[in-house]
Write a protein that binds this DNA or RNA. Structure first.
Length: 530
RNA sequence: GCGCCAGUAGCUCAGAUGGAUAGAGCGAUUGCCUUCGAAGCAAUAGGUCGCGGGUUCGAUUCCUGCCUGGCGCACCA
C-alpha cells in the first residue's frame, strides 16, 4: 500500500511541478487519516509557493487520479502534510481479498529474481548451543522467511568451524575425561565433556575419532535447531576449504593484492590501511593459516556462487571481526556493498528477576535445548524475536512459560483461538455461512480500525525484510491482537441480524488469517484452542 | 585507552532515510462476565526521550563532547 501511495504521489509531483522527490509515506495519528505523505514539505524549499498551496494542489491532483478507487479523501493540512483517508469500500474489498488469498495475502506474489544467501548460527562444534546462538538462529531464520515473503530466493547456510585450536582442545579434553583424568589447562570442562567421553569411549582411539566427535556435537546442534523448526539448505564445512586448496588459493590472492607483508615469520594483511584497528595475521609463524584466512576463502566462495546479496548474522562478541573481513574482501575487489553483517546483541537469562548463571569457565550453562524443553518452541521463538536485534535481550524464562495474560505469546495466540471459538459457536447455533456476504455491513468504527490494521501486513513484511527487523512482526502481531480484542468487546459477531453476522464472520476470518500469516512467518503455532 | 551496541513511564520494550499531542505490555488504582473464550476489555495515574552543545522552520531521530551499562580489542574461533 505504501509503495503504491508513494508512486502515486511522486508521479503527481512530477506532473504538477516537474520535480523528482523521494517522499515518505507514513501512518499518522488516525485522526489525521490512514496514510500521510511529506512530499509538499520536500518541495517547499524548491518551489516558490506557500506550503499549504503546494500541498493542496497535490492533494487535489492525487484525488482526481485515484478517481475514488481507493480514497475517500485526500487533503492538505496547514502544516504541509497530505493526508489520505481510505474509502470503506476499499477496506471491505481487502477483507474479501484476504479470505480469497489466505496464506498468500501479504506476501509478494512474484519472485523478484534476486538470490540471497544468509549465513547464521555457525557455532563451533565444540559444545551445545546456548541461548545466544538461539537468538542469532531465530533472527536469521526470520529474516530469511521475511525475504522469501518479499520475493527473494533465499538460501540458509550454516558454517561449520571444524578446524583449529578449539577443536584440538575439545578432542584433548574428551580424551582426558575418557581416561578418567582432568581436562588440560584451557580445555573444555563442561559436564557435557564427560557425557561425550562416556558415549564415545569405544571410538576414542580410532583414527576417525575427530570426525565422530564433531559429528556428534553437530547432531546435537542440528537437533535443537530442528526443534525450533530451523532448516538449513547447507552445512558448509571449513575443513573442505582447506582440503580443496581454497585456503591456499586465498593466500596467493591476498599476496597478489600487494596488501600483505611478512613479519616475525608470519604473513600479515595490512587491514589497518582499510579501516581495521590493526593488521592481521593470515599465515602463522608455524605455517598454519588463521581462522580469518579460511573465512576469507569461505566468503570468496560465497561470492563466486553468484548471489545478489550475502548476509551474515553474528553475535555481538564477534563484531570486532567485521572490519577485517570487509577489508579483505575489498582489496580482493569484491562488491562489499552486497555483503552485510547483522550483529545480534547478547541474551541475559532470568527467572523472574533472578539472573540465570552462565559460567563460561566451568562450561555449566543452560543450553538452548534445555530452554526449548522448558518453555516450548513457540515461546522460545517469540521471545527471541521480540526485541530489536541490536538491543540486549532480557529473557525471562518464568514469564515465557507462564500461561497468563502478561505473556505476549499467549496474548497473540489467544486472539487466534478466540476467533476459532466464535466459528465453533456459530456452527453450534446453526448459522449458515458459506462465505457469501455483504461486507458493506461493516461500518462500525471498531471494524474500520480492525480492517485498517489488517491491510498493513504486506507493508510490514516488506519493511521488516528490508530493515532486517523481525521484531517488527512481533509488534505488528501484538498490535493486531490488541485491536481485535477491543473489537471483540465492542461488536458482537453472532446476532439476530444474519447479514451482519455473516459479514462479521468474514471479518473475523480475515483477522484470523492475518494473525496466522504472521505467526507462520515467525514459525509460532496458531492454535485453534488453548 | 580505542571500537561497536544500548540508555525513552516503576519494570521490559516499540518509535519508518527529521515532522503534526512520544506509544504498548507488565506493575499500580478503578470499573466490566445471566449473551460468541475475563488467557479479555475500558478508564486513571505515571515522561527534563542519560546530560550539555550544535545543524534546522522543526530533533527521541542527524552531528559533537561528556556520563552510565553490555560486548570486543589473539599468530582463539
Amino acid at each position: 500500500m505504501k509503495e503504491e501511495i508513494k508512486k502515486l504521489v511522486e508521479s503527481t509531483v512530477a506532473d504538477v511541478y516537474g520535480q523528482t522527490v523521494r517522499s515518505v509515506t507514513g501512518a499518522p495519528n488516525p485522526k489525521y487519516g490512514d496514510f500521510s505523505s511529506n512530499a509538499a514539505l520536500l518541495l517547499d524549499p524548491v518551489i516558490n509557493e506557500p506550503l499549504f498551496e503546494i500541498a493542496s494542489k497535490l492533494a487535489a491532483a492525487i484525488f482526481v487520479r485515484d478517481a475514488g478507487r481507493t480514497f475517500k479523501k485526500v487533503e492538505a493540512t496547514r502544516t504541509g502534510f497530505i493526508n489520505f483517508r481510505l474509502d470503506e469500500s476499499y477496506l471491505q474489498r481487502q477483507v474479501a481479498l484476504i479470505r480469497e488469498e489466505k496464506d498468500r495475502y501479504g506476501r509478494k506474489k512474484e519472485k523478484n529474481g534476486k538470490r540471497v544467501l544468509i549465513e547464521f548460527v555457525s557455532a563451533n562444534p565444540t559444545g551445545p548451543l546456548h541461548i545466544g546462538h538461539g537468538r542469532w538462529a531465530v533472527i536469521g531464520d526470520d529474516i530469511a522467511s521475511l525475504l522469501e515473503a518479499s520475493g527473494y530466493e533465499v538460501e540458509r547456510e550454516f558454517y561449520i568451524n571444524d578446524v583449529g585450536n578449539q577443536i584440538e582442545k575439545l578432542i584433548n579434553s574428551v580424551k582426558a575425561r575418557a581416561e578418567g583424568g582432568e581436562v588440560p589447562e584451557g580445555g573444555y570442562s563442561g559436564a557435557y565433556i564427560q557425557d561425550l567421553a562416556d558415549e564415545l569411549k569405544a571410538d576414542i582411539s580410532k583414527p576417525e575419532f575427530r570426525n565422530i566427535l564433531i559429528g556428534t556435537i553437530l547432531e546435537w546442534q542440528k537437533r535443537v535447531l530442528r526443534e525450533l523448526s530451523i532448516e538449513f539448505d547447507r552445512f558448509f564445512s571449513e575443513r573442505t576449504l582447506h582440503e580443496k586448496g581454497k585456503v591456499a588459493e586465498t593466500i596467493e590472492k591476498m599476496k597478489k593484492t600487494g596488501h600483505t607483508f611478512v613479519e616475525d615469520g608470519a604473513l600479515w594483511f595490512k587491514s589497518q590501511d582499510h579501516g581495521d584497528d590493526k593488521n592481521r595475521v593470515l599465515v602463522r609463524e608455524n605455517g598454519e593459516p588463521t581462522y580469518f584466512t579460511a573465512d576469507i576463502a569461505y566468503h570468496l566462495d560465497k561470492f563466486s556462487r553468484g548471489y545478489d546479496q550475502l548476509i551474515d548474522v553474528w553475535g555481538a562478541d564477534h563484531h570486532g571481526y567485521v572490519p577485517r573481513l570487509k577489508a579483505a574482501l575489498k582489496v580482493l575487489g569484491l562488491p562489499v556493498d552486497h555483503f552485510e553483517v547483522i550483529i545480534g546483541q547478547l541474551v541475559s537469562l532470568f527467572r523472574g528477576s533472578e539472573p540465570v548463571k552462565m559460567s563460561k569457565r566451568t562450561g555449566d550453562m543452560i543450553t538452548l535445548e534445555e530452554v526449548v524443553q522448558e518453555i516450548g518452541k513457540d515461546a522460545t521463538r517469540f521471545f527471541l524475536t521480540m526485541v530489536s536485534s541490536q538491543n540486549r535481550l532480557e529473557f525471562d524464562l518464568e514469564l515465557a512459560k507462564k500461561h497468563a495474560s502478561d505473556n505476549p505469546v499467549y496474548y497473540v495466540q489467544y486472539a487466534h483461538a478466540r476467533i476459532c471459538s466464535i466459528f465453533r459457536e456459530a456452527e453450534e447455533r446453526g448459522v449458515e455461512f458459506n462465505g457469501n456476504c455483504d461486507l458493506s455491513k461493516l461500518i462500525h468504527p471498531a471494524e474500520r480500525d480492525l480492517m485498517r490494521k489488517l491491510i498493513d501486513l504486506g507493508d510490514e513484511i516488506v519493511s521488516a525484510a528490508e530493515k532486517r527487523t523481525p521484531h517488527q512482526m512481533v509488534e505488528y502481531a501484538k498490535s493486531l491482537a490488541a485491536i481485535y480484542h477491543n473489537y471483540y468487546h465492542k461488536c458482537r459477531v453472532i446476532s439476530d441480524d444474519i447479514d451482519l453476522t455473516r459479514a462479521r464472520l468474514a471479518l473475523a476470518d480475515a483477522t484470523r488469517t492475518i494473525l496466522k500469516n504472521v505467526l507462520i512467518l515467525l514459525k509460532v503455532e496458531a492454535p485453534e484452542r488453548m
